[in-house]
Design a protein around this nucleic acid. Structure first.
Lengths: 151, 151
DNA sequence: TATTGTTATACTCTATAACTATA
DNA sequence: TATAGTTATAGAGTATAACAATA
């Protein structure tokens, strides 16, 4: 078996297992509903808010592209984050079609709180692993990030 | 810092990273829509079909419990799998309230095909990792399964 | 005309509540 | 009465299509 064939075979097996576990994890996370202490903070909104903090001041379009959702979907997410007082819309002075999205101090506070408080479900389950297993998971996380990354 | 505190701190950091990457992975997987060559084979249906193969002949109720969805949701999933010719409903002869779910030969074939063909998105991305990284991912997968497991 | 974002609308997935059939 | 599953209905999330405002 060539190296390429072996890589393909182990990749498909891994993909199969990963798909199942990710689907279940995502479903469980969604069922936890509001993450952190803030009500209405869903996974999608948390992910968008984290992206805003990282990319601000960012246009709605590039935020949608970064999060792989369509612009109308991001409009909805921002509507809610804005209503919650966590994000801001500002019309670009150079090009008045463009909306710049920013994070409010409250948004930053909520983000930090969610990060430290963590998701009860995930953090509790992870805490049950031993130190070695957590270290392994910490090393695997960047790999997952590369798998989901663009390009 | 006590061992417990260290475990908690690393767990919350890990949970935070894991949540973001799982949310993105799940969204990308959902966008791929039909996995494998079969149309309408969504992630939820694939997960249910895999569970049926593992547990058959299984009642609708225990299947719902195993997949952490409510019975009405599982009813819908089975409706579709049955219409696709991949799963069967059989009324239990001992207790006519109970429905036993089974997998058809076609269902088994589709499952095997999805497993070997794999999800184009995931398998292709995983194939880009080197052998060492794939080995690491393979070791991390059971940890994720334990995190999402019951109890 | 082309581009950015929003509004209108629809679909999928899942939930809760009410119901039917059976025990 | 209690239980297994289904039907009715609703809500969240996201998509496509059509539109408005601006370049």
């Amino acid at each position: 078996m060539s190296a390429t064939t072996a890589a393909t075979s182990s990749s498909t097996r891994l993909a199969s297992g990963l798909r199942l576990v990710v689907a279940r994890l995502a479903r469980r996370m969604r069922q936890q509903q509001s993450i952190g202490s803030t009500d209405d903070m869903t996974v999608a909104r948390y992910a968008a808010l984290a992206a805003i903090e990282r990319m601000q001041p960012v246009t709605l379009g590039s935020l949608a592209a970064a999060e792989h959702v369509q612009p109308p979907s991001m409009t909805r997410i921002i509507d809610r984050l804005e209503a919650m007082g966590l994000a801001t819309r500002t019309i670009d002075t150079n090009d008045r079609r463009v909306v710049r999205i920013g994070i409010t101090p409250e948004g930053g506070r909520v983000l930090a709180e969610v990060r430290t408080t963590g998701d009860a479900f995930l953090a509790k389950r992870i805490a049950r692993l031993n130190a070695e297993e957590r270290a392994l998971l910490a090393r695997a996380l960047p790999l997952l990030e590369r798998i989901v990354a663009d390009r």
